[in-house]
Each structure stands twice: as structure tokens, then as C-alpha cells.
Amino acid sequence: MTDQRKTDYDALADRLTGDSPLEVAAVQVGSDAAASGRAFLLREYGGDAAIRQAIRRGRPRVGDSTPGESATVRGRIADVEYRAFMELVTELGKPQSELIREAVHLLLEHHKKLAS
């Protein structure tokens, strides 16, 4: 796991429980449990839009907040280019998708298809 993806469970526990240990409360069921759960989510996320974003399935759309899938571009490259590309992925420590997006952006700028 990379350092960015490691979870500091002690810090998370402190944030969720504060200075005091967890208190056992009465068990809630039905609409009481739903109301409690909603109140918790609102406290944690601040509003309905933030809650929807947090529980949204799938990867976030690239480039903006418009719902739906991002456009996908497929292509093939020569083996020698692929090996060089994979070396670059390793050297830079960036995902392939990020490097491809950067390459497409540079190509579009070069051909003056994007506003600077």
C-alpha cells in the first residue's frame, strides 16, 4: 500500500470517539434508527449533496462534477512505446490514466484545440 492510501486507524478512532470511550446507547430500530443515521450523516457531511457524493458508486467523473461516466478513448501502441511508457509510469509514480490525460492535453494544446 502506498503512504497515501494507508489509514491512520488511531487518528480515525480519536476523531470518531473524541476523548471519551464509546458509550453504549439504547438500540434503535425502524424509523428511529433511520432518523438517527440521517442525523449522523448530516453532522459528518454537512448536507444532502455531500452525502450523495460520499455514497456515490463508482469512480468520480474526470474533470468536473457532472454525473455519469467520463469519455473513454482506446488505442494501441507499439511494444517499444509501451515499455517506455511503463518505465515512465514507474519513474513518476503516477497512474497510467493520469499520464494519458496529460499527454492528450499537451497534444490538444500543441494543435491549438484548447484555450490556454
Rank of each mutant, 00 (worst) to 15 (best):
T2G: 03
D3R: 12
D3P: 00
R5C: 07
R5H: 12
K6F: 07
K6M: 13
K6G: 00
K6D: 02
T7M: 12
T7K: 04
D8I: 10
D8T: 11
Y9K: 13
D10C: 02
D10R: 15
A11L: 11
A13R: 13
D14S: 12
R15E: 12
R15M: 10
R15P: 00
L16G: 07
L16N: 02
T17H: 08
G18D: 04
G18H: 08
P21T: 08
P21Y: 02
V24L: 12
V24W: 06
A25G: 06
V27M: 12
G30Y: 03
G30W: 02
G30I: 00
A33Q: 11
G37Y: 09
G37K: 02
G37N: 03
L42D: 15
G46H: 09
G47C: 08
G47T: 03
D48S: 12
D48G: 06
A49P: 01
A50H: 05
A50C: 07
I51H: 02
Q53W: 01
Q53V: 07
A54E: 12
R57G: 08
R57H: 11
G58F: 03
R59F: 01
R59S: 13
R59P: 05
R59Q: 13
P60F: 04
R61S: 06
V62L: 11
D64E: 03
D64A: 05
D64H: 06
P67K: 02
G68N: 06
G68A: 06
S70P: 08
S70Q: 07
A71D: 09
A71T: 11
T72P: 00
T72K: 15
V73E: 01
R74H: 08
R76K: 14
I77F: 10
A78F: 04
D79P: 04
V80H: 10
E81Q: 14
Y82S: 11
Y82W: 15
A84K: 10
A84Y: 02
E87Q: 11
L88N: 10
L88T: 13
L88P: 00
V89L: 04
T90R: 09
L92Y: 01
G93Y: 09
P95N: 09
P95C: 03
Q96M: 04
S97L: 03
E98D: 08
E98A: 15
L99E: 05
L99Q: 03
R101S: 09
E102M: 11
E102D: 15
E102K: 13
V104A: 14
L106I: 00
L107V: 07
L108S: 05
L108D: 07
H110D: 15
H111N: 13
L114M: 09
A115Y: 00
